[in-house]
Design a protein around this nucleic acid. Structure first.
Lengths: 221, 221
DNA sequence: CCTACCGATCGGTAGG
DNA sequence: CCTACCGATCGGTAGG
């Protein structure tokens, strides 16, 4: 399956450069949006030629789309994957929420959550970037809804739980915390979001002991 | 106090042109952000000369700042002013929320709420635009907090109401509805936000009759 | 002296 | 990955 190796290692070097460009692109776009990306700027900051960057991606839009894909990998690694280590249930749902808050607090993306920034930037436009960003958000809410349903099937959440309503409110509090921390530079919002979510989860839990008593976001999780 | 009128009406014409430019600028920025504004584009769309647009504002940044101010007037007219007609209390608070949702649903700003878009665009940057956008958001949360406190002082809300926590959650649900309606093009989110807010307000109300039984956003309010 | 523009062009940079 | 360019457009300013 592996292509015949060229002993000069040009393919490998190209992949390294590509990753370098995308990591920088994700960081820039989380602060200034995907509109802040330009071939010349990325080339200048990384000491590459503009046409070299262009050759690796084919067009500016393809570079932007690849940047969105890279951001998705970062988000999955920091938020989605760690929650898989816990068994399905309210504990896993709560872990998804705290990891999402920690991802913002720790500035995994320097300008706050990449997807909130680009969703605001491309939400009202049309085209491939809008569609990919909307799909990424749909994946996130679908993951939250699936996790709630698993908790319900495990008997940890009441049978009459309104899943879309609950997930809408959870996602709203998570995003508001990210937005406010970036805009105002404070961290109270993380405790407020955690408290609001925890109150909502207590409302659907069949057993209060399934959830922590207090929102502990000081921990390194 | 009025300046001596020049019979040629040049000053008046300038003010009309200025308003025309800012109205277009607000519409463009709500969709594409303030970065989507350019002197040449505004001039082209309004059949003015680029230097004419420039002369009216002095610089691009001053044009952007004036655009933020104009958007503030629009928001005040559609959301803040109507709520003043109601007496202080939970009814006024609820009216602020429904007007805010209607402002998004009716696309008073074509790309969804102007301030959510530009807050995401400039939240992680520095400068005069960031500061003005942050101040506008602080004004909005301060208005909500003041309205909650008035309801508490009128005996309509419990004395132990955590005002900042409540306002954080209300603002989060309002913004999430706006963002989701723009990104996905549906309207369910308005009912979800209204339901979530109403549930929260019932939790602090001393008398359930102070609030509507159902979130009626179909009405023309 | 003022205003509200005009047509043309400044030095630079965009995507390609 | 490079240098060398293109058509266009950017924010801003000249004299009239």
């Amino acid at each position: 399956m592996t292509p015949t190796p060229r002993t000069d290692g040009r393919v490998e070097r190209g992949n390294r450069t590509r990753r370098l460009i995308l990591e920088r692109g994700v960081a820039i776009a989380s602060v200034e949006g995907l509109g802040g990306l330009s071939l010349g700027r990325l080339a200048g900051e990384l000491k590459l030629s503009k046409s070299g960057v262009f050759a690796l991606f084919g067009s500016k839009e393809d570079l932007q789309l690849a940047t969105v894909r890279m951001a998705g990998k970062v988000f999955a690694q920091h938020v989605v994957q760690p929650a898989r280590e816990l068994p399905p249930g309210l504990g896993r749902l709560w872990h998804l929420c705290t990891r999402r808050l920690a991802c913002s607090r720790d500035r995994v993306f320097p300008g706050g959550c990449f997807f909130r920034t680009v969703a605001a930037e491309y939400g009202a436009r049309e085209g491939r970037i809008h569609d990919m960003v909307a799909a990424a958000r749909a994946d996130w809410t679908a993951l939250l809804e699936q996790t709630v349903r698993e908790a319900r099937e495990a008997g940890e959440a009441h049978a009459d739980t309104d899943v879309p309503q609950l997930v809408f409110e959870i996602a709203a509090l998570l995003e508001a915390a990210d937005a406010e921390s970036v805009l105002r530079g404070d961290t109270d919002c993380y405790d407020r979001a955690a408290e609001g979510i925890l109150r909502r989860l207590r409302g659907i839990a069949t057993d209060p002991a399934l959830l922590p008593e207090r929102a502990q976001l000081k921990r390194n999780d």
